[in-house]
């Protein structure tokens, strides 16, 4: 089974999910993000889920946990590209992903990470 590649641009790790996420792939992705974060000391993580047609509670928890873990390591996570139908379903299901920043697309997500990780550096 394929892996989700993680790219690093400046201080940001980017994981773009291009297929349906099997459980194992999601677990691997979480693991890989944490590894990369430890290795590179990146300040921000962007997860792009534009291609995801379904986010169930398992995946929702996986994403939420990843954000919590990255926060512990001093990095911020932004989730971008949720489809309207997926967002409606998540709300109906009762998953609100509290505490995770979301953005419409990759560009806005990167903007937000740049601004928010820069602020921290200046403090």
């Amino acid at each position: 089974m394929s892996k989700i590649p993680i790219l690093k641009i400046e201080d940001i790790l980017i994981a773009s999910v291009q297929t349906e996420l099997h459980d194992r792939m999601a677990e691997d992705l979480q693991h890989d993000i944490m590894e990369e974060l430890g290795r590179t000391n990146a300040r921000g993580v962007l997860i792009d889920v534009t291609a995801l047609a379904i986010v169930d509670s398992f995946l929702g928890r996986m994403i939420g946990d990843t954000a919590k873990m990255t926060r512990m390591m001093g990095a911020k996570t932004v989730l971008v590209g949720l489809q309207p139908a997926v967002a409606i379903t998540m709300v109906e299901l009762g998953m609100e992903l509290a505490g995770i920043h979301t953005a419409l697309n990759m560009e806005k997500g990167i903007d937000w990470l740049r601004q928010n990780t820069k602020n921290r550096a200046m403090q």
Binding site: I54, A85, V86, T89, E92, L93
Partner: peptide, 23 residues
């Protein structure tokens, strides 16, 4: 999800059905 689409459900309902099945 494909079957729901064939029956005539819109994208939001298809997603809800598929997610319920996933759970």
């Amino acid at each position: 999800k494909d079957m729901a689409k064939e029956i005539g459900f819109g994208i939001v309902d298809q997603t809800k059905i598929a997610t319920a099945v996933s759970e």
